[in-house]
Amino acid sequence: MSQVIEKNKNRMWLWLLITTGFFVLMPLWAPEMWLHLAIEIFIVALFAMSLNMILGRAGLPSFGHACFYAVGGYAFAILVVKLKLPAFIGLLAAPFISGLFAVIIGYFSIRLTGIHFAILTMGFGQIVWAIAHKWYSFTGGDDGITGIPIPAILKQPEVFYYLAFIMLIVSSAVIKVVQDSAFGQTIVAVRENRERVTFSGLKVWHHLLLNFVIAGFFAGIAGALLAMVNRSVFADFGYWTSSAAVVLMCILGGVGSFVGPMVGAVIITLLEHYISIYTYYWQMILGCLIIILIMFMPGGICGYIQEKLQKNEPGA
């Protein structure tokens, strides 16, 4: 048994090395559009991973996660455009502002579970969206904030590509460390049996709130990066359909696996980009994909592969 795990672990490291190498070398040969798509994928993957801390690890169905994404983007845009701060300070500050929002929203919603949690997070998300959509003097209303100035060097897609890539790697490493820590294990224990953990004397909701805030923090990084790469930010980033899209990525990739959300982000981003070239009815295709996914692969792609691997390992 332990040998099998060891073998899987080695294999995992190998795969990790190959994928990292692939992405590091990509700017050398790939056409420019691929870099743009890759940048978007890195950002969305980070966003999906941050959601998975709530959705997968804590087992709480958040339908308002996009609001932290939008807050991150707006925080960056407002700091850079209105306060004329340098872009890197904006990028540093944005996740903390998102985290602050997560504290407030988490405080109200984290004590609930299941459907109630979903509805409350969605409600708060919609409120943030409504504020961004309406407050013209501060957020630019539904026109958003466009033409955000960023350092000239970052306008080169290769440079931004590496920035987004490094942000993704560092953030996912931090998320991994958090998940493997005692704290992370407690979150999973709460998901499995909330009462038992409560009886053990732990303040469950403190842990869940902290977890929620960390997730909001990383969503803020993703949002700030998106605002940077688009040079613009819009209220629609925080609309509930945006939250639903990222939930879909997590479920598609597999919430039970660390790389699952990333896989989901890759597939959905590419699919959306290429489907809409060939048809105006992309929502139909996306909808069917969701239905098929939930009917036949509720564990997501990574869950499905894991299941297969376990079956094929003799003696496992």
Partner: peptide, 16 residues
């Protein structure tokens, strides 16, 4: 290219 009435998708479409 369809931008689904979303400015960020319009940006992506324009680049593409």
């Amino acid at each position: 290219r369809d931008n689904k009435l979303k400015p960020d998708i319009a940006v992506k479409n324009a680049k593409s």
